[in-house]
């Protein structure tokens, strides 16, 4: 299975995504640069990672949405190709029109960085076999994660089962506590929380450094 991870100028979760996905059995990660316009047809999945593409200039995701590679991504998606956006990747997918709605400044303006509980919403290939209501603990790290959408579009989204994830509690003022959505065809999905930051079982060696630090301080005392 070939997964493409796109790096835009200012992406900062591209390494984490590539590493995290690369740990999975049978996954081959291809790194893509935002200026690549080659055919993406051989990929099984394209991931738009989090970060601050183009320094969030103009609007989050606005500049990345018109990057050269995004024309190819749109074409890939229009043929049914699977596209997944995390955090800034989600913002880019909304800006490019691949997903409905938009993500704007959090209700209380602050940048929120913490672990939160979300629950699986409408059933979709993005969450199967997890059933609706399954709770997940994932970190969020965003200043502009308040999902907004007009009521007409929302009722269409609800009708077509496009609400992929909701926060358990209201965190950022997101409409109907929405944390992630899909397009109507269910081949494009975006979410604000970061699965790649909660999917690393490979090394606990960081604990050895923390333990050494503690030991050093204790011995000095």
């Amino acid at each position: 299975m070939r997964v493409g991870v796109i790096t835009f100028p200012g992406s900062n979760c591209d390494e984490d995504c590539s590493f995290s996905l690369g740990q999975l059995e049978g996954v081959e990660v291809s790194r893509l640069w935002h200026k690549d316009t080659a055919s993406l047809g051989e990929l099984d999945l394209i991931v738009l990672p989090g970060g601050f593409s183009y320094g969030d200039y103009l609007r989050t995701g606005a500049m990345a949405a018109i990057s050269p590679i995004m024309s190819a991504v749109k074409e890939y998606a229009s043929r049914g190709g699977r596209v997944f956006g995390i955090c800034n990747g989600f913002q880019i997918l909304c800006e490019s029109g691949l997903l409905p709605g938009a993500l704007v400044k959090n209700q209380k303006l602050g940048f929120i960085c913490k672990e939160v509980t979300i629950e699986v919403g409408d059933p979709s290939p993005w969450t199967a076999p997890l059933s609706t209501g399954t709770q997940l603990k994932l970190p969020i790290a965003h200043g502009e994660g308040r999902f907004v959408v007009d009521p007409t579009t929302y009722s269409e989204m609800k009708k077509h089962g496009q609400i992929a994830f909701r926060y358990l509690e209201d965190l950022n003022g997101s409409f109907e506590k929405i944390a992630g959505i899909t397009n109507r065809e269910k081949n494009v999905c975006g979410m604000m929380p970061h699965p790649e930051r909660a999917a690393d079982l490979k090394s606990r060696d960081g604990m050895k450094i923390w333990n050494a630090l503690l030991r050093q301080v204790r011995e000095k005392a």
Binding site: A62, I66, G101, A102, V104, V148, V149, D150
Partner: peptide, 9 residues
């Protein structure tokens, strides 16, 4: 239309 304004918001 193309860049400066996002008509959704």
């Amino acid at each position: 239309e193309k860049l400066l304004v996002n008509p959704v918001i």
